[in-house]
């Protein structure tokens, strides 16, 4: 087990190296750079442009620049954002927390609904409740996220039940007590996490239902029934424990994609998250920010996968990690 974990950890540095090199190469190959957009201003001169590029280290070749970045990154110095002239690390940590908050809320929502509904549908296969749940999952799977987001924003605007965007009530924030601030953030979380949660929930729910249906037809379930166990014991103790196994892996992977899933929703709901920062940085060619975000996402992915594997080994004693 421990050798397995150590081996997984050893594989991380080369992976990150490859990812960072590829990302840097792509950024380098993309036409123009962060300062190109200034050309739209008729009063900007060539001297100014040249001085800016030199100042921000954009005048070297690809390998020189990458090496420079790498040496600093190894010491955990990700440089200063071109756009904001502040350390990338500061910029990202704050946004990271916001995105994690949104992703965790939607994750909890998605799994909190997917498991019970999936089990319910699986147990009552073919009955009305199964069809209702199937319909919900059908909608969740097929509705585009942007459209769903806009619908929800419309809902908020028309009913005024929810704020139309942002992470908190800007206007009254300073006058609120901590408890009110907490409630306020929760209130702002409802719609965006609902949008992200619903789409994720749909696929988990279908998976749960399928597993449940399959497990319930297994021999050991029949045996359990035959020896006279109560229905709920059969379903929840024996069948559920077995059916949920593959979903644990899924759960691990969903941890890995925590950072990636919320970009469109962040834009529509004006959520101050990392995805928005990263995508803005890509469009602006703000290299230090893009690099740091990519490294962070890659690390999360590796960690998420590792956690998924470990959880599986923990739950299912038949699996041994060697």
């Amino acid at each position: 087990m421990w050798t397995y974990i150590a081996r997984r950890f050893l594989a991380v540095p080369p992976l990150l190296l490859a990812v960072s090199f590829l990302t840097y190469g792509l950024l380098y190959l993309a036409p123009g750079d962060y300062f190109t957009r200034l050309e739209e201003d008729p009063t900007i001169t060539a001297e100014y442009m040249a001085q800016l590029r030199a100042q921000y280290g954009l005048d070297g070749g690809m390998l020189v620049r990458y090496w420079h970045w790498l040496v600093n990154a190894v010491q955990l110095d990700f440089g200063h954002s071109f756009r904001f002239d502040v350390p990338v690390f500061d910029l990202i940590t704050e946004r990271l927390l916001n995105t994690l908050m949104l992703s965790l809320a939607s994750l909890i929502l998605a799994w909190g609904l997917a498991l019970p509904l999936g089990v319910l549908a699986g147990v009552h296969q073919g009955k009305a409740i199964d069809r209702v749940v199937g319909f919900i999952s059908f909608i969740g799977l097929s509705i585009p996220r942007v459209f769903f987001s806009l619908l929800m924003v419309m809902l908020a605007a028309v009913t005024k039940w929810f704020p139309v965007g942002g992470m908190r009530d800007q206007i009254y924030w300073d006058t609120m007590t901590s408890w009110e601030q907490f409630l306020d953030v929760c209130h702002h979380l409802v719609l965006p996490s609902l949008v992200i949660g619903t789409t994720q929930m749909a696929s988990y729910m279908r998976q749960m239902r399928a597993e449940m249906v399959e497990t319930l037809s297994k021999d050991f379930v029949r045996t359990a029934r035959a020896k006279g166990l109560a229905h709920w014991q059969v379903v929840y103790k024996h069948a559920f424990g077995n059916a949920v196994n593959p979903l644990v892996t899924l759960f691990g992977y969903s941890l890995a994609s925590l950072l990636a899933g919320s970009f469109l929703v962040e834009i529509v709901f004006a959520w101050p998250g990392l995805a928005r920062l990263t995508v803005d940085a890509v469009f602006a060619q703000d290299e230090p920010v893009v690099m740091a975000s990519v490294i962070m996402a890659a690390t999360m992915l590796v960690a998420g996968n590792l956690i998924a594997d470990l959880m599986l080994a923990f739950i299912d004693p038949r699996i041994r990690l060697e």
Partner: peptide, 30 residues
Amino acid sequence: MRKLSGLIVLATLVPMLTSGCGKKNDNGGG
């Protein structure tokens, strides 16, 4: 600047379905 968010991450369990914040005071700065 935003110490609070960290706590909220862990505590966001139940989506709130009603708006429930005091919104009366004026902007009473320093």
